[in-house]
């Protein structure tokens, strides 16, 4: 028997040798440790992030000393009080939250049919086209894209030039809330589609056919079968789009032109324009808390089942 088999190749003998070496270096009893070792880089990154957050929280309890332009040594809740008392911060926060909610809702509304079409189309060419159209925007940075919109929508932009050419006068298409929301939706759409794709691909076509055969028209099938089965994907995509929008900086800055700041702009201004690190830190902490609260809310609405997306269904 053994003689009939050809001798193992050098490669496999090398692998065997390495395995034997590994067995001697790491006794089987301590095997569990190696798994954790692979997690170390990730844990390190999260750790650094946590330390940074710690510093931010610490800063947020020190008020700015106008006389020296340094943070006072004394701990106080003054910065938070400022956030609550000054209407400008309440407005910024409200604007960010409303924007995030709007962008999330509209993006999901548009992403769903796109992702659905991608999973259901029978034509390979069509699927390829949809995939390329989806990934192309990823190659173009957010800032470049925002400037692209400025060129199209600006006072002397393509659309206004066309309108003027037709004698219809010009429109204010940028530097307002609508432009920011529009730009954000355009930016978030590929993320949402990408996150919805696996959820929709996991719905067998048979199930939809079964629903139809059992007497449901497509509206009922969508409401009672497709939507509930796509829920994990919708929640996942919703959370990502919501948090990305809530913390976005470039779109409100460029397409809003300083008129419609989101929280991130306010944080930037606090740190670098008015040099009030304490206030900026307080804004940051508030943003993290509010964002986390909303994510928690999403999950509680979705129910615990959403969390075992990848896990074995019991």
């Amino acid at each position: 028997m053994a003689s009939a088999q050809s001798a193992p190749s050098l490669f496999w003998r090398l692998i065997d040798g390495l395995e034997a070496l590994l067995r001697r270096l790491v006794p089987p009893k301590r095997r569990g440790v190696t798994g954790w070792l692979f997690l170390a880089p990730a844990l390190l990154l999260v750790g650094i992030l946590a330390v940074g957050l710690g510093y931010i929280i610490e800063y947020s309890f020190h008020e700015l000393d106008i006389a020296t332009y340094r943070l006072k040594d004394a701990y106080s809740l003054g910065n938070y009080q400022t956030l609550i008392e000054r209407p400008v911060y309440r407005n910024v926060l409200w604007r960010s939250l409303l924007g995030a909610a709007l962008v999330t809702a509209i993006t999901l509304f548009f992403a769903f049919p796109y992702a659905y079409a991608m999973t259901r189309t029978r034509s390979a060419a069509m699927r390829k086209f949809l995939l390329i159209a989806l990934f192309l925007p990823f190659f173009i940075g957010q800032v470049v894209r925002a400037y692209g919109w400025l060129i199209i929508l600006g006072k002397q932009g393509v659309i206004n030039a066309m309108l003027a050419g037709l004698g219809l006068g010009t429109l204010d298409l940028i530097y307002n809330y609508g432009a920011v929301i529009f730009g954000l939706i355009q930016y978030m759409l590929p993320f949402a589609v990408l996150l919805l794709l696996p959820a929709l691909a996991a719905i067998p076509e048979d199930v939809e056919m079964a629903s139809e055969g059992l007497g449901a028209n497509w509206v009922s099938t969508f409401r009672h079968v497709v939507l509930p089965m796509a829920k994990p994907g919708l929640i996942g995509a919703g959370i990502v789009v919501f948090t990305l929008t809530l913390t976005d900086f470039a779109m409100p800055e460029i397409l809003g032109g300083g008129t419609t700041d989101f929280v991130a702009s306010a944080i930037y201004d606090s740190f670098f324009q008015i040099s009030n690190a304490g206030l900026g830190a307080a804004l940051s902490v508030a943003l993290v808390l509010i964002g986390s609260a909303f994510v928690a809310l999403f999950f509680s609405i979705a129910g615990s089942t959403t969390l075992d997306i990848g896990g074995e269904k019991k």
Partner: peptide, 28 residues
């Protein structure tokens, strides 16, 4: 259309609705 025909079908892969209980499937 299929949903207006009075036909019950059992699929090869059954195509039960996974988010519904057995009773809800039958009630659908």
């Amino acid at each position: 259309p299929a949903h207006r025909r009075s036909i019950g079908m059992v699929f090869q892969k059954l195509a039960l609705f996974p988010h519904m209980t057995a009773a809800q499937n039958v009630a659908y």
